[in-house]
Design a protein around this nucleic acid. Structure first.
Length: 568
RNA sequence: GCGCUCGUAGCUCAGUUGGAUAGAGCAGCGGACUUCUAAUCCUCAGGUCGCAGGUUCGAGUCCUGCCGGGCGCACCA
């Protein structure tokens, strides 16, 4: 149990006694003490009594012996100061805990995280960056919290564009196409296919016929299609490797996977009486959605021409994830513009009876990537920044910085550091802000390794490691005395709360914010408290704090998918 | 037109079911390396929290109405 949870439990019991029902003591960090409890104020209003009086009675009833002292302050806050012994004890406990105080969840459940989802034969652009990075972070955090997490990359590997893509493949030959795709010139391939489709009616005809062949299961067409998919996937994995995310080949489940389930889904919806013909299409009209004209808004599961749209695929996917994968919490790490579409998917899945409490589906939405002009950066609207090029650029800039700052390190280690710092910078820039907001894409800011960046955290970690390396070893117990030690200890003990918040709310920036605070507290400690030069008992105590800081930073960064080098 | 979303310091952003004096970073001023990594730290300055009402002991946070930006609104995904 974290320090905050412990205080919350103790005060909560006192609140409950007084109120006769459970009351959240509303514990938070405070500028006026170590923590403050705000719970007395809302309770006072409820029972129509002066808040300071209520706070006083809660404080009197609270069992805080050996843990903290408290006092009523202001309009009815309870300020809490942790006792030195308690702090020592909790830091010591955290120091011997592999999990750094982060509890395993009491209710482990099967969680499915849908993220990344690039399109076959299309470049992974910065738009895929957020989904991949955020999703990867959530997978790591939820897994660490004790859930059974399955990551799925829902790739676009089916649909009408494949007619022209396959014809392009035939046109230039498999070998040439495979080469083009494997070196990562996917946009070039896609654009060439599009150009041929738009400019040559004969090609367009062939492309349309090819779609029919593909959907009809023509063996040769399927073979060619598999070439396209395999080559693209090889490229995705190369980007994943560069990014350092957990996705494996097995996590790729394309839209095509659901092909033979689509008819079944439509049939089931029809059987439930949810399906209605409209303008020749088969539609579900979930309650609460209206179109431009104010009338009911359809989710088209079967198009007028008999084909299935992406709505059908998404319905088949959510059904599969619930009924066959037995997912209990299903997260969609998808851009905010898809918000309504996903709400409709969830609504239809609910009306169909698939999505029922305790099974939940949630859209973990993130904002768009904007260009310098503040407009949305789209792949087909001109020059999209290629993800792999962006990463290469970040790494090479980091390499220049490492070469300048640490020429004494050998080239191989410098290269590893550059990779960790460069890729980390890009990831951190993405994870450290509230993800629902749009995001102005600015290479320079991402790669500035000062301030609130991955580089700052990595550098702090490397500095701690330097002390630990020079110390050799230590065998002490913590004894927290100096204010800087105390501030650092409180930050360390808050790590489990930050991890818990991300696991509950799916907002990685809560963790980056905490790690940043920890790093700041450590540098203040670094300046104020010599470690190696201190006399033995103090030295050992401070080494415990250093070791814990290094492990916490390393583990925290790892949960973000960011590597923390020992040296920089 | 309807819906979703965002609006906080010059810039980029935090701000935890409504809590004490709205906080960081960058940029700017001025300081600190014979001392465990200065990719650092300290100081100063910088605000009508888009606007106007409302709810109450208390509103950046909740409600209503405006203003402004973005996105979405039937067979592309």
């Amino acid at each position: 149990m974290s320090l905050r949870d412990l205080l919350s439990a103790r005060l909560g019991a006192a609140f409950a006694t007084l109120a006769g029902e459970p009351v959240d003591p509303l514990i938070q960090r405070s500028a006026h003490a170590d923590f403050q409890a705000n719970g007395a104020l809302p309770l006072a209003r409820k029972v129509q009594r002066p808040a300071r009086e209520v706070a006083g009675e809660v404080l009197a009833a609270a069992e805080l012996t050996g843990l903290a002292t408290g006092e009523v302050s202001g309009p009815g806050f309870i300020n809490l100061t942790v006792l030195p012994d308690a702090l020592d004890r909790m830091v010591a406990a955290m120091a011997v805990d592999e999990r750094l105080g982060v509890p395993m969840t009491q209710d482990p459940e099967p969680v499915i995280v849908d993220y990344s989802g690039p399109n076959v034969a299309k470049e992974m652009h910065v738009g895929h960056l957020r989904s991949t990075i955020i999703g990867d972070c959530l997978v790591r955090v939820l897994r660490f919290a004790g859930h059974d997490v399955t990551g799925i990359s829902h790739t676009g590997d089916w649909g009408t564009p494949f007619g022209m893509l396959l014809e392009r493949l035939v046109e230039i030959g498999e070998a040439a196409a495979a080469h083009e795709l494997s070196v990562g010139d996917l946009d070039g391939f896609y654009k060439a296919a599009r150009l041929r489709f738009d400019s040559d009616p004969a090609f367009a005809d062939r492309a349309r016929r090819r779609v029919v062949l593909l959907q009809g299961g023509d063996a040769e067409t399927l073979r060619l299609w598999r070439v396209l998919v395999a080559e693209s996937q090889r490229y995705f994995m190369a980007v994943n490797e560069k990014l350092g995310v957990l996705l494996t080949e097995a996590d790729y489940m394309g839209e095509s996977f659901y092909n033979d389930r689509l008819a079944e889904v439509v049939h089931e919806l029809d059987g439930l009486g949810l399906l209605r013909p409209s303008d020749g299409a088969q539609c579900v009209f979930p309650a609460g959605f209206t179109g431009r004209d104010g009338g009911p808004f359809p989710m088209i599961v079967r198009k007028r021409d008999g084909g299935f749209g992406y709505s059908a695929t998404d319905l088949a996917a959510i059904r599969y994830r619930i009924k066959e994968l037995k997912g209990s919490l299903i997260l969609y790490v998808v851009g905010a513009p898809q918000s309504r579409h996903l709400r409709m998917v969830f609504a239809v899945a609910g009306e169909a009876g698939w999505l029922r409490w305790p099974v939940r589906a949630q859209h973990v939405a993130f904002g768009s990537i904007l260009g310098e002009d503040g407009r949305m950066l789209k792949s087909r609207a001109g020059r999209a920044v290629k993800l792999s090029e962006l990463l290469d650029e970040a790494v090479s800039r980091a390499a220049a910085l490492v070469a300048e700052k640490s020429p004494q390190l050998d080239p191989q280690e410098r290269a590893e550091i550059a990779r960790a710092v460069g890729v980390g910078a890009v990831k951190y820039a993405d994870l450290s802000t509230d993800m629902v907001k749009d995001y102005v894409f600015d290479l320079d800011r991402m790669l500035a390794f000062t301030g609130d960046t991955a580089g700052y955290l990595q550098y702090t970690h490397a500095r701690v490691c330097s002390i630990l390396r020079k110390a050799g070893g230590f065998t002490g117990t913590p004894s927290i005395v100096d204010p800087a030690e105390r501030a650092l200890a409180l930050e360390l003990l808050a790590f489990p709360d930050a991890v818990q918040e991300v696991a509950d709310e799916f907002q990685p920036h809560k963790l980056t914010g905490h790690l940043r605070g920890l790093a700041v507290a450590f540098t203040a400690f670094w300046d104020a408290c010599p470690v190696l030069r201190a006399s033995p008992p103090v030295r050992e105590s401070r080494l415990v704090l250093c070791d814990l800081t290094a492990r916490t930073l390393r583990h925290g960064l790892d949960l973000l998918g960011i590597h923390a080098p020992q040296r920089m």
